[in-house]
Amino acid sequence: MSLRRDIHGAFETITPPLGGMPERVVQTVLADNTGRRRKGRMFIRARVPLSLVAVIAIIALVVAVLVGGRVVQDWNALHHTSPAGETYQSQLAQLEAQPMRIPALASRGDCQSGPYNSVGSYGSGPVYGDGGITTSSDWGIYYHNLVYAERNISGPILVRAVDLFTGRPVIFIGNYAAGPVAGTDTVNGQIYEQRVELVVDTSHASKTTASHKFNWPFLAGVPAGWSGATGWQIDGVGFGEVFLAC
């Protein structure tokens, strides 16, 4: 191996994903400029989200390890245990019928990440998303991501995402993966069905954390050769949101 490659490898393993940091840094500067916050407070603010993200990521990983295999193996089980039964299924069908509202972009220069909430998570609410660490397979890369909500939301919440430039759907495996099967993949020695939807609800959320009322850790996959930019659409009963991750 070359020294350059070794150094890349050595530092990349300790560098966490940026998440919403670029936007957070920029907005903090601009907020300071308008005099809304004082510098000292902002440094505290800048530190808090990163530590929260770290805590959430650890919790998400632990939860995924503990409950991952079983919950994910059988998506039907989730449906059978849905408290609202037919109503739930009907609501989900309505959400699935919603057209995709992710904008078509002409070039990478048109891609602006966001919107973000005040702590740098993706989304305009009531559901927000955070990026996480990656796991690779022969097929592509999986991100240990998280969606979360701060308030109770009734009914199913449908998450769909596409590569903004190849148009291929982002794949979901494991917890909360739902919808049509697009293929299979072996990740960390376990075979998963790749699905094109993520469906969550508050009665099947992970443990409440100090920062979030409802957490849904999940695995989102993109094939090798993806464009690096994805658009996300989250639809729930009475709300819908779209955000871009460029």
Binding site: F11, I14, T15, M21, R47, L50
Partner: peptide, 23 residues
Amino acid sequence: IEPGFRLAMAMLHDAQAAEDAVQ
């Protein structure tokens, strides 16, 4: 921000300190 953070991480080995430096 991204190259700045990578530089700061490589120099400081601490994510919070690196983000503060970039900020």
